[in-house]
Amino acid sequence: MSAVGTPVLEARDIRRDYTVSGGLFGRNRVVHAVKGVSFSVEKGRTLAIVGESGCGKSTLARILTLIDPQTSGEFLIEGHPVDIAVTRPTPELRRKVQIVFQNPYGSLNPRQKIGSVLTEPLLLNTDKSAAERRDLAMEMLVKVGLQPEHFGRYPHMFSGGQRQRIAIARALMLSPSILVLDEPVSALDLSVQAQILNLLADLQDEFGLTYVFISHDLSVVRFIADDVMVMYFGEAVEHAPKDQIFADPQHEYTRMLFSATPRADPVSIRRRIEARA
């Protein structure tokens, strides 16, 4: 358990470069995907990372979830420095951070039953018996708003929203402390999106989870985030508490993002109709 106020997740000047082959005769190029990003998230809070495609937010997510190593910079989980390029992460470390991906159709194996999806993390990382694993999976299904009888079904039998619930359940099976959510609702319908956002809020309260929520949808971010970090071409151009950033955006790019977001309030509709007439 971390003490109150100490960050669960901390990044100091994280950088990530990729080398792109220049072909047979060309010279190799280096792409700086993340150019020195620092932040920290306290237990039970939500940091939203906002930016458009290519800004490095998913690269950052891959570093946070121990999929890719950082090129340089320090990265701490519950106060312990992590660099998977130097030391292989232990199973204890791996279970602390889990991820939910954007596309609930692509992130589940179509030939794997839901029960096996949910028990696999336990099989690989714990020495629980088959019966225990099964009970835990059933319990988790109920917690994410599905039924125990869904245990033996295949992914194609579920809707997009239900699949995203399954992906969330899978991520929670190892009782992680940090959940990285990479655009978890952008592939979903408006009403289903609302259900999933409510579920995420409930689960955060129940398990004291820390969220890193990656999104390009500012209205969703406004609903779920505590702090917001805006990324642009690999740099964090603005990082502030939610209320502050929405009330008084400092950086030009943040302002541009806000003005590009469609507004559904009657005042702006009336203004548009008048301009059109």
């Binding site: 408006l190 009403s191 259900q195 809020a201 209205s219 609903f223």
Partner: peptide, 20 residues
């Protein structure tokens, strides 16, 4: 009305009303 209420920017409390 339910569709409009489910817009995150129209959220009043910390829960979003859903269509169901």
């Amino acid at each position: 009305r339910a569709l409009l209420a489910a817009l995150p920017e129209n959220a009043t409390g910390d829960r979003l009303p859903t269509v169901s």
